[in-house]
């Protein structure tokens, strides 16, 4: 018992020790925060500088003179190969790809998850396992046959072709999300509704859909982030006019002609990143839930 009673001097010392520990903890956390923020900070400041200032100035210095010239160039006149229209047309390509692909894959995932979780039949679990394994394949293994198939279907290098690819390879994850969500809803609910004479779609529409808002948000955010940030499918299955924004950004940055305009590169990178960053800031909670659900599974 004696060692628990401290003299006043000892308590004061331990108070000081605690405060020091506390402060160093906050400082350490702050240093790491700087590490994560630094690239974003450098991107933003560089995009607001003139090329002249970039050549003479400091990497992390604030711009002496703020100019939006680089943003204008990046948006509407930077060269992505032979085309010099900025990232604007490609930004809209990404929108045109993402919206239908996210909608379709979420819808299909909801129906699949509903069937697998609530209308169990023989083989349903095997089908689910097969779909789950499909989430993990490296897509390189399907690139060659997919390129040939898109060619045969006459949609190679088109936006519908890319939508098709994203829907197919998004199905595994969207099904997983909804299945894991619906599995926790008691089967008695479906049974009772069946006794009352409600059919398959009626039950989905009036019982399950109204309960699904959180998982719809998680799935939509997950799919949107995946599809917007995709590069592999975009670069493999698009042509000059149908490339998504990630491919256009890479072309701007790695085009070898002319003077390297770092400020334009950075502005283009921020433009390409804005939609997913916005989603993250607005709905970060759901974004994290999707990430962890996609990796740990519920």
């Amino acid at each position: 018992m004696t060692d628990l009673t401290l003299t006043p001097v000892q308590t004061r010392q331990s108070h000081i020790g605690k405060a020091v520990l506390r402060w160093s903890l906050y400082i350490l956390l702050g240093v790491f925060a700087l590490f994560y923020l630094m690239p974003l900070f450098v991107m933003v400041t560089t995009s607001l500088k003139s090329l002249e200032e970039i050549r003479t100035g400091d990497l992390v210095a604030l711009p002496r003179e703020v100019t939006f010239e680089a943003w204008r160039t990046a948006w509407s006149s930077a060269c992505t190969g032979i085309q010099c229209e900025g990232v604007r047309p490609f930004f809209w390509n990404s929108v045109l790809i993402a919206i239908p692909a996210v909608t379709l894959s979420t819808l299909l995932g909801a129906m699949n998850g509903y069937v697998i979780a609530q209308w169990r039949f023989r083989g349903a679990n095997l089908i689910f396992s097969l779909m789950l394994f499909g989430c993990f394949i490296p897509f390189q293994v399907v690139l060659l046959p997919m390129a040939r198939l898109l060619g045969m279907m006459g949609i190679a290098g088109t936006i519908p072709g890319l939508i098709f690819v994203h829907v197919i390879y998004g199905l595994g994850f969207t099904t997983l999300f909804f299945r894991n969500y619906y599995v926790s809803i008691p089967a008695e609910l479906t049974k009772a509704a069946k006794v009352d004479g409600a059919g398959f779609f009626r039950i989905f529409w009036s019982i399950f859909l109204p309960l699904s808002l959180p998982i719809i948000v998680v799935t939509v955010i997950w799919q949107f982030t995946q599809i917007w940030n995709d590069f592999l499918f975009g670069v493999s299955f698009s042509q000059a006019g149908t490339q998504p924004v990630t491919v256009a950004l890479n072309n701007i940055v790695n085009s070898t002609t002319g003077v390297k305009e770092y400020n334009v590169d950075m502005a283009a990178a921020i433009i390409a990143a804005l939609p997913t960053l916005l989603v993250y800031v607005v709905a970060g909670k759901y974004f994290i839930r999707g990430l962890t659900a996609g990796s740990v599974k519920g």
Partner: peptide
């Protein structure tokens, strides 16, 4: 702050 890079494209 620690997690936002995960929302970015690898290209960015």
């Amino acid at each position: 702050i620690y997690l936002y890079p995960m929302a970015l494209s690898m290209i960015v």
